[in-house]
Design a protein around this nucleic acid. Structure first.
Length: 312
DNA sequence: AAGACGAAAGTGGTTGA
DNA sequence: TCAACAACTTTCGTCTT
């Protein structure tokens, strides 16, 4: 342990990408991260998993001066990308002749550029595959996935992901895409799939929609109807009737200020009764993600204000 | 027995000072 | 930042079919 070169054990959760050892040492004299078991040099570009970034030159320091949460996926390039050292010395320690230095400088520059672009690309790949996983689990159509991917890309290119988790922004993008495509999902559904709290998804969503100037109308109850109908195996008649009721409801100002899902559920309930395809309040409530009580409240308002006769 | 109804108390988000 | 507020939920007892 007490070698001549002082190696400092770092108590981090990093893992060597080659042999999966957790014993890594930082060699300060060379600014390298080295695996104790297999000797793999993991360069300094790899991330210190603590709250702060390491910065080894002024360029990095500038880029990383304002840091958010540490990146949470481990080795974007598996630690295998090449880094060209900053000292003007070759592998034997001999100084590099002046006539080659300009070339070396250009190589370093491009190496850096390529590496960075790889990192952001990888980031994007992770986000997009998450997006795809979530949307396929929710059975969302292709257009929604593509819209979500587009929104995420825009967010990423405007640096909105910094300080937020990749998954969080992806979930928010998905939520926004659903609304934009008129196949809304509730924040609850999205947050369940994404394993996040509704607050976080909502907060991220508000942030990116503001920054990207997504102009999204508030969701209307109508948007939910096709989905609820198919989930509950209801006929087209019921669907048409529901839409009709909702239109009237909107004209009579019965939808504003109410939760769209509640209004949708109530008018769907009324339509099922009118069309003789009865479903219980509980069934509809579960599907719509509201309670029976909410359905009852809405449905009382609707029947009273719209003079709809219900015979049970 | 299951579903519908409604009262009352509690919860989470929005709004305006 | 805090209180007021409306919408909504939870809970529970009663009524109807």
């Amino acid at each position: 342990m007490t070698g001549k070169k002082e190696k400092q054990k770092i108590e981090l959760t990093a893992i060597c990408p080659e042999c999966c050892s957790t014993y890594l040492s930082r060699d300060h004299s060379r600014a390298e991260l080295v695996c104790d078991d297999c000797g793999l040099v993991i360069d300094e570009d790899l991330i210190d998993y603590g709250p702060e970034w390491r910065a080894f030159d002024s360029e990095q320091r500038e880029k990383r001066a304002r840091t958010g949460a540490p990146m949470n996926y481990m080795f974007p390039d598996k630690g295998l990308s090449t880094t060209i050292g900053w000292t003007n010395r070759d592998s034997y320690g001999k100084s590099i002749p002046n006539r080659n230095r300009a070339q070396l400088y250009r190589m370093r520059k491009w190496q850096n550029r390529i590496r960075i672009s790889n990192a952001t690309m990888k980031n994007l790949v992770v986000a997009l595959s998450n997006l795809d996983r979530m949307s396929s689990r929710m059975g969302l159509p292709r257009t929604v996935r593509e819209t979500a991917a587009m929104i995420y890309r825009k967010a990423a290119s405007k640096n909105l992901v910094r300080g937020r988790t990749v998954d969080g922004v992806a979930a928010a993008a998905l939520y926004a895409a659903c609304r934009q495509c008129h196949v809304p999902r509730t924040l609850d559904e999205i947050s369940n799939i994404a394993n996040m709290s509704r607050r976080d998804v909502g907060r991220n969503y508000r942030y990116i929609s503001r920054e990207l100037k997504l102009k999204l109308m508030p969701t209307t109850p109508q948007d939910y109807i096709p989905r609820f109908c198919s989930e509950l195996k209801l006929s087209g008649d019921v669907k048409a009737k529901t839409i009709e009721i909702l239109k009237e409801a909107a004209d009579n100002e019965l939808t504003s200020g109410r939760g769209p899902t509640g209004v949708a559920a109530a008018s769907l309930y009324i339509a099922t009764v009118l069309c003789g395809e009865r479903r219980t309040q509980r069934d509809i409530a579960d599907e719509a993600g509201v309670t029976e009580v909410t359905i009852r409240n809405r449905y009382k308002e609707l029947t009273e204000k719209l003079d709809i006769e219900i015979t049970l």
